[in-house]
Design a binder for these strands. Sequence first.
DNA 1: TCGTTTTAGTAACGCAACGTGCGTTACTAT
DNA 2: ATAGTAACGCACGTTGCGTTACTAAAACGA
Lengths: 412, 412
Amino acid sequence: MPSATAATGPHVLRQINVAAVLTALRQAERAVARVADLMTTTGLSRPAVTRALADLRDADLVELVADETTRIGRPAQRARFRAELGHVAGVDVGPHKILVKIADLAGEVLTTHRIATPPAATGPEVFDLVTAGLDQAVAAAGLTHADLWAVCVGTPGIVDRDHGEVVLAPSIPGWAGLPVVPQLRDQLHCPVLIDNDVNLAVLAERWRGTAIGVESLVFVQWGERIGTGLIIDGAPYRGAHAAAGELGFLDLGLPPNDPTGRPAANEGTGPFERLVGAAAIHELAVAMTAGGRDRDLHAQLTAPGERDIAPLFAAAATGSPVAVAVVDRVAARFAQGLGALILLMDPEQVVIGGGLSRAGDTLLDPVRRHLVGRTLSSPTEVRASTLGEDAVVLGAVRHALDSTAERLTALA
Amino acid sequence: MPSATAATGPHVLRQINVAAVLTALRQAERAVARVADLMTTTGLSRPAVTRALADLRDADLVELVADETTRIGRPAQRARFRAELGHVAGVDVGPHKILVKIADLAGEVLTTHRIATPPAATGPEVFDLVTAGLDQAVAAAGLTHADLWAVCVGTPGIVDRDHGEVVLAPSIPGWAGLPVVPQLRDQLHCPVLIDNDVNLAVLAERWRGTAIGVESLVFVQWGERIGTGLIIDGAPYRGAHAAAGELGFLDLGLPPNDPTGRPAANEGTGPFERLVGAAAIHELAVAMTAGGRDRDLHAQLTAPGERDIAPLFAAAATGSPVAVAVVDRVAARFAQGLGALILLMDPEQVVIGGGLSRAGDTLLDPVRRHLVGRTLSSPTEVRASTLGEDAVVLGAVRHALDSTAERLTALA
DNA sequence: TCGTTTTAGTAACGCAACGTGCGTTACTAT
DNA sequence: ATAGTAACGCACGTTGCGTTACTAAAACGA
């Protein structure tokens, strides 16, 4: 096998230039461009661009459309990338829901399908819901399985991307060890990818979120669990053992500030999650509002069957002193962990996602304040995710799209 | 400017293939290869390889040597990369010494020059020592300034690589703000690079140290100061603000376990350095050996003018209970910070350098023990650096070599 | 000593892809 | 109707690759 890649003939030039023209075309406005535009963006001559476009047209990747813009001179033919030639699916398998999105090769989302997972659904049941969701989403888009070029599944837990299954998934019983990728591949007959949900969410934030084009980025999922996805120098980084960014397991050696000797919420949680996860925040809020210090909020937080902490942030937003104090303590704890992450990674930007990000600046402003002095250089920007629950499934779509690049160049 | 890189003519093929042949030749054993060898490694035909070699010979990058291996058939001519065509210099500007190494384009070190920095030398004086060291090293190699293709300077502190100067260097007074790169470039008339010392050391460990070829790597400099250099997916990562891996400033929120309310040793040190830096270890050892618990060691540590902690590890190696206890507490503290780094970065391997690495397994075995349970997956390998004080200067050589790649391809 | 074998180098040919230059086409404006 | 403009497309020359055929140089064996 050649160690240094060499060009073994003029056909290599064609490959390079066809790929260059296709890339330029896909990056153009609405994936439509005139020959003259492609000449300038690629630096190629007119015959070269025309030849490349002819190849792409033969492969059905490109079609010619008339130019409507009435200007002077002979109207230009415009080449359009046929994004409808193939489609990809992104799937977010969460503990409570399954989200499926179908997009074309331009990344345009055609359909979205949402399935609420029944409580205590087992792994095989979840898998059946995934396939059902895919079927319905594909059908709703007017497509068949054969139109899918790639599918990417995002799931919590630790993922074995080589074997295509989940190694550890505490939040979905029986999901770990299921051969998700092989089974899906057999059903769909297309490449199937699997990745950790947070690793995909960070891709989405860089693609269509609040960190577009950022070169080094940290996405922190802040909810019951705490995890992070990393993008370093433009590429996702998962670590040597697919365990990079496990902020939830950071042990700051902090004394548990609340008096109740709280047991580990459930198996497999880490120290930092037990300190500032949603459950810990709820407990802290209940404890700090007890004794009549804030009867209203205490009542809301301890209502039967109620574990939601939204009332806490609502109260803090209106200035309730106790709620503000709770939020401030939560922010201080969180900033200690996030500060360590920023100190070691030095990202260009941090995006906070997950349930806690709904609190917005009510929570993030104190976090930013407590970060001051913890990071070395100029303050790193901390933003709330704007993608909401779509982050993971959009990242899955993006990852699936990326995987189709080689199939595209192979066609032409 | 072209957004997608295209091939604008057959000459691009030549460029590709000349570069491929040169790369294959440089990667070959002793940078010597027969045409047949290059054919197999590049996948090119014999005439193509011959043409590429002719170009390289015209550019004086390659010469032909006779084949000594007596085998049947017509003896092959062998192409040899003329590593002596150019040279690079690496410089390590430390607080106590300046190291200069001159190497040829194959990375073979020709000369090494060492200058002890006078105590309290100012920035300009240090700069003069650097130029003097470069002059002498170049002369000792039988070269002139014109033979230098690139120079890389490694220095502690935070480095502004764009402006080519040090922003913050607490250990060398007056060194920060000096226009090191512009001045050196004017004197030497060649590209001059500057980088943080630890960022360079990690390059050396991957090149000629104990982590050859490792794709994701953390190098921890453990001495008076504590800093890290990161390699992620094969490329050095410095962070968005050139502040990645600042482990020394990690604040674990640990209570200062020693009774003495120790003041900050000097300006600009971080919490973790104040906890397990060499000075902190010395103080801890003095405190824990006091009160007659280990008179011999206490006397060695408190000898007039003595701040060295080597006796501590010597005593621990021979099994002195108090010394072992001190080392164990140091290791526990250090493992907490290193564990955080491993948890967040998930590197393939960790290399410990700096003065403390001289303690070897006496210190690292306890560190490994205390790391168990702090990292999520299988235990990450922790090794002591084998490069000693050469790590930074070797990394500077490697970085300078890397920067010559484009000049090489431009020549051919 | 000389032919045979084996491997290396080189020249000639055909093919493919590039850029350049120029004629052609199609539409607008006067 | 005619001039002007902008895009299209073909012919040409150049370059570089692979293939093929031939020559050159050394070791081995008769």
